[in-house]
């Protein structure tokens, strides 16, 4: 889980990018961290990550974003990839229906390998190619509501909603962290003993409320 560091930033949040190969995960990463877009489609090999520091609710948050290949042959690194992640951006391509239909499989993978409290946002990338759309916004919105995901349509090419997507994830993560901190304080204050307090994690997971899907344009 995320930990607090005294210097340079207040929180370090690990976020993973997942989705089929070719949906634009790497360009989302480069757009957010370096404000760059590369037109050449080059498959990610293994894992890459980049960081960017930004302000969330007055706190300095360092986002460590991990990008992976969506292809099957890199699946061996799955467990390590998800370890410690507090957020996930699940990307599909609005011009390829199959990438949207595989969202369910990626969700199962998250459930199998990632922390159960992970914050998940679904992103329909390549919204600039509206004339080649194969997945309607309504279909995606319905799926997001069913699965309790946040949802936005993005365009890494036009930098549309990329910043907003990460801001939303980080905000949600921060909210959950704050609630956990408050719960921990509450638990500590109720005991008379000065040492040895054990926090029941299952109780806290029950109290976490997943934000309902926010509307896209």
């Amino acid at each position: 889980m995320a930990y607090k560091v005294d210097h340079e930033y207040d929180y370090l949040f690990k976020i993973v990018l997942i989705g089929d190969s070719g949906v634009g995960k790497s360009n989302i990463l480069s757009r957010f961290t370096r404000n760059e877009f590369c037109l050449e489609s080059k498959s990610t090999i293994g894992v890459e990550f980049a960081t960017r520091t930004l302000q969330v609710e007055g706190k300095t948050v360092k986002a460590q974003i991990w990008d992976t290949a969506g292809q099957e042959r890199y699946r061996a690194i799955t467990s390590a990839y998800y370890r410690g992640a507090v957020g996930a951006l699940l990307v599909y391509d609005i011009t390829k229906r199959q990438t949207f239909e595989n969202v369910q499989r990626w969700l199962r993978e998250l459930r199998d390998h990632a922390d159960s409290n992970i914050v998940i946002m679904m992103a329909g990338n390549k919204s600039d190619l509206n004339h080649l759309r194969a997945v309607s916004t309504d279909d995606a919105q319905n799926l997001a509501e069913r699965e309790a995901l946040s949802f936005l349509e993005t365009s890494a090419l036009e930098a549309f909603n990329v910043e907003k997507a990460f801001q939303t994830i980080l905000f949600d993560i921060y909210q959950i962290m704050s609630k956990k901190a408050l719960a921990a304080q509450g638990a500590a204050s109720t005991t008379s003993l000065p040492h040895g307090t054990t926090i029941n994690v299952s109780n806290m997971s029950g109290s976490v409320e997943k934000k309902s899907a926010c509307c896209s344009n």
């Binding site: 011009t95 229906r97 004339h131 080649l132 759309r133 194969a134």
Partner: peptide
């Protein structure tokens, strides 16, 4: 682009 649209239309859900 029209060819891409056509190919997209030819995919059935």
């Amino acid at each position: 682009n029209r060819l891409l649209q056509l190919n997209s239309d030819l995919e059935i859900t």
